[in-house]
């Protein structure tokens, strides 16, 4: 009996060791987001407004050393500097946003910083990214998700308030937020392993919350 237990433990130890590293999703940074979809007067999507609230640890990391006037307080200009730096850094990865559409997908233009504030110990940043050309969703819906393929950062929509909101949208338009469904993505995930641009497995996509915007 003891040997059986030993044997089982041994096999478990081996099994745990053989599991690919991706089995151990390790997000270290957490973002709670509210995304606004801005429509133009022609009823097309003009761009997206992102509000990201970072976890306490990342907020401290981002603001550490920003206190240029050494007064020990976090001030608006200091937070704004972080915001400007972040949107400059993540431009090349499309602000962590992937589109899925038949045919054309929208192209991002330059982002504009909007506001920054502290909510308790959490940094909250808001910025806006217009599309290069307004995107028509009357015939085909727009599907997008904001996530980190490496899954170092976890992005989740705000569940309490409205995670996705439509701004200036025609009445027939609606946004639908679908829960992350890792189990349904498994085949896609397994086949995408190691093929991601960053070299890492595209684990983040399994946890991505997809949003569908349509006007019927």
């Amino acid at each position: 009996m003891l040997k059986l237990i030993q044997k089982t433990l041994f096999c478990t130890a081996i099994a745990v060791n053989l599991l690919p590293n991706s089995a151990w999703a390790h997000p270290h940074e957490f973002v709670t987001m509210q995304i606004g979809i801005a429509f133009d007067d022609a009823g097309k999507i003009a761009g997206m407004r992102y509000n990201w609230v970072f976890d306490e640890f990342f907020s401290a990391y981002a603001l550490e050393g920003q206190d240029n006037n050494k007064n020990g307080k976090v001030e608006r200009e200091e937070m704004d500097a972080v915001l400007t730096e972040i949107i400059g850094n993540i431009k090349r990865i499309q602000y962590f946003t992937k589109f899925e559409a038949e045919g054309l997908t929208p192209k991002f233009d330059e982002a504009t910083p909007l506001s920054s504030e502290m909510i308790g110990r959490q940094l909250s940043l808001t910025f806006e990214v217009p599309f290069k050309a307004s995107f028509d969703v009357t015939s085909t819906p727009l599907k997008y998700a904001t996530y980190d393929p490496e899954f170092y950062i976890s992005f989740e929509h705000d569940k309490g308030k409205k995670g996705v909101s439509l701004v200036n949208a025609p009445k027939n338009c609606s946004g639908e937020l679908s829960e992350a469904t890792p189990s349904e993505d498994i085949e896609e995930f397994a086949s995408s392993l190691g093929k991601d641009d960053s070299g890492g497995p595209d684990l983040g996509s399994s946890f991505a919350e997809w949003v569908t915007i349509s006007c019927k």
Binding site: E29, F58, E85, I86, N89, I93, E150, G199
Partner: peptide, 10 residues
């Protein structure tokens, strides 16, 4: 040696 966007590139 790779430069993934971690920590928002900060």
């Amino acid at each position: 040696f790779e430069a993934p966007i971690r920590s928002m590139g900060l």
